[in-house]
Structure formats: structure tokens, C-alpha cells
Amino acid sequence: MIVVGGEALVDLVPENERTESGLAALVPRLGGAACNVAVALGRLGADAALLSRLSTDAFGRALLRRLSSSGVDTSLLQRGDEPTSLAVVNPVENGVEYTFHVHGCADRRVVDPGPLESAHAVSLGGLSLVLEPGASAYESVMRRESHRGSLIALDPNIRDPLIDDAAAYRARFENWLPNVDLLKLSAEDAQWLVGDSARDPVGAAREWVTMGPSAVLVTHGGAGMSVVLRDGGRVDVSVPSSTVVDTIGAGDTVQAAVLAWLARNDVLSGSAVAALGTEQWRAVLRFAASSAAVTCSRPGAEPPHAAELDELASC
């Protein structure tokens, strides 16, 4: 079982047509980094559960249906009458920007459920490790499950507007790394974490891999992705050509696809990840890149099903 901890929310995405005021109508799309990862894992055939707190409002009920229909175990979900978090999406030249409405919302009030007896891996990140009081609960889960021997995968998925104290967050991030087996992040996130937009993200990854993780995976958008290994090795792959409709959820799909590949190949543990060779990592990254390309080919965070990837591979 792969337990994904973190937020489930609604993205409000502008339509192409604009009103007389110059503003576009906003269409609700179900998302949230952790929810996207869990949905992608379920669709890729992995045994996955989401640890979060969902509202009992209409959005929360829709999120629950989405998770269930994607094959995600919902037994760890907590419920409350607080509202669902909202993220207003603003497309920009190199991706999207977000404005968040999260005060007093359900997903930040999650509590630590105690030992995750059935978990072989735990995936964390996103808003869930920023917004209190839930952030401390997830951090507790991370440290306990790491000590219990579960593989810990972390994707910080930085959302700068929600981080009040950048220096404190960066210190906290480095404090997590001894408990992390697999660190995945975008090039932009890596540069934010080192406080230098001109810094080589792979160079930063080489520093972080000495602090705990067995591997650090860096995504470069349309330029592909890289993984840096503890022994100093590096593997790079390109992104398959496809029509990009929407990049929302692409990074979450990468996180899920990596974990799904590890589970499918029976290497879902910290020691097994540390032992992966160059060709195995190349296969991991190619699978992740192909999965993310499908997500980018359609609007909203809509990760592929395993059958879709099998069909593409056979073409």
C-alpha cells in the first residue's frame, strides 16, 4: 500500500472566453497535489490510499467520488463540515500561478491517525506541509513511518504565496531530508529552495542527495527530467512529444508514476531504491515522462489509466 498524505481541493480554472469585464468564467476542477498523486496511482493500478480531511460540502463529496472511481482506498479519509480549499488558477507564459483560499478549510485540520500498519510507502508534500495545524501532523507521520521502515517520498511542490517565512521553511525542508528516501521536485522548486533562481537545480540535487535521500529527481518541464543518485550518478530522459493543453497535475503524475513503477517492479523500499541501476532509473523516468505527457494533453489534472499507457506503448 502507498499512502499519500495531503490536500484535496478544487482548482478554479478560467475558460478561454472572457466576459465584458475582461474576466473569464471559472470552471471548478478537482485537484490538490496529494489528491492528484493518489488518483494517478489508482489509475495506474497501484494499491493506494489518501490520508486527508475532506469537507462534507458538495466539493468534498465530488472529491470523494473521484477518489473512489479511480480505485483509491478512502478508509484513511477524515471528514468535517469546514469548507473545501480553493485554488484560483491564472495561466502564465511558463505554466500557471495560483491564488489560494484555505483559511479554516477542511484539509488543513487533518490529525495524525497513528501508525500506518499497511503502508509500504508514504508520499507527502504540497500545501499539506505548509499549512498548520495539519503540517505538523503530516511531519509526525513522515518521521514515524520512516522509522518504521516505510519508503518516504517527498515532493515539496512549492507555493510561495502560502509560505510566510521562507528561511524557516528552507530549514525545515533540510531537516526532513534524513527521513526521505526519494525526493522529487521541479527545477523551479529547487531554485526557490536554495534561494537562487540562477542556480543549477541538478547541482542543488547533488547536495541534497548527501543529506538522506537515495535519489533526487528533478523535472525540467518540456526539457525532460533528471535523477541524481547517492553514488554520484545521473540519468536524464527527454519528454515525449505531445500537444500540451494544460500542465496542471503534470508534476503530481510524475510522482505517482515513479511510485507506481517501483511498486509494479517490487522495489518499493528505501534499500531497493538505493540499489537501482542506471538502466532501471532510465525506465522509471521514461514511464514517468510518458504518464505526465498524457496528463498534459488534456485539460485539468486528469492522469492516465494503465490501459492508456499500454495502448500507447504498443503503437
Rank of each mutant, 00 (worst) to 15 (best):
G6F: 04
E7G: 02
A8G: 13
P14Q: 03
N16H: 14
T19Y: 06
S21G: 15
S21N: 14
S21H: 11
G22L: 05
L23H: 12
R29L: 06
L30H: 04
A34R: 03
N36W: 03
A38F: 06
A40S: 13
A40Y: 04
L41S: 07
G42D: 05
R43D: 02
L44T: 07
L44F: 04
G45T: 10
D47A: 14
A48T: 11
A48P: 13
A48W: 04
A49M: 10
L51I: 10
L54E: 02
S55R: 03
T56W: 05
A62R: 13
A62Y: 03
R65L: 12
R65M: 09
L67T: 07
S70G: 07
D73Y: 05
D81S: 15
D81T: 14
E82V: 14
L86T: 13
V88S: 10
E97M: 04
H103G: 13
H103Q: 15
D107S: 08
V110E: 00
V111Q: 15
L116K: 00
L116M: 09
S123Q: 12
L127K: 02
A135Q: 03
A135R: 03
S136C: 12
A137R: 05
Y138L: 15
S140W: 11
S140C: 13
S146L: 09
H147N: 14
R148H: 09
R148A: 15
G149I: 14
A153V: 10
L162N: 10
L162Y: 07
D164P: 06
D164Y: 09
L177Y: 10
N179I: 10
V180Q: 02
L185G: 02
V194Y: 06
G195T: 08
A198D: 15
G203E: 15
R206V: 08
E207D: 15
E207N: 12
V216Y: 05
L217Y: 02
T219H: 02
A223V: 00
M225F: 01
S226N: 08
S226C: 09
L229N: 01
L229M: 13
G232R: 04
G233I: 03
R234Y: 01
V239L: 11
V239C: 12
S242T: 15
S242R: 15
T243N: 14
V244I: 10
V244Q: 11
G249A: 10
G249T: 10
A250V: 02
T253D: 13
V254L: 07
Q255E: 11
Q255T: 14
A256S: 10
V258M: 05
L259N: 01
L262T: 00
A263M: 11
R264G: 13
N265Q: 12
G270D: 09
A275T: 00
R282A: 07
V284Y: 02
R286E: 14
F287K: 01
S290K: 08
S291H: 05
V294K: 11
R298W: 04
R298N: 06
G300N: 03
E302F: 02
E302L: 08
P303C: 05
H305F: 12
D310E: 15
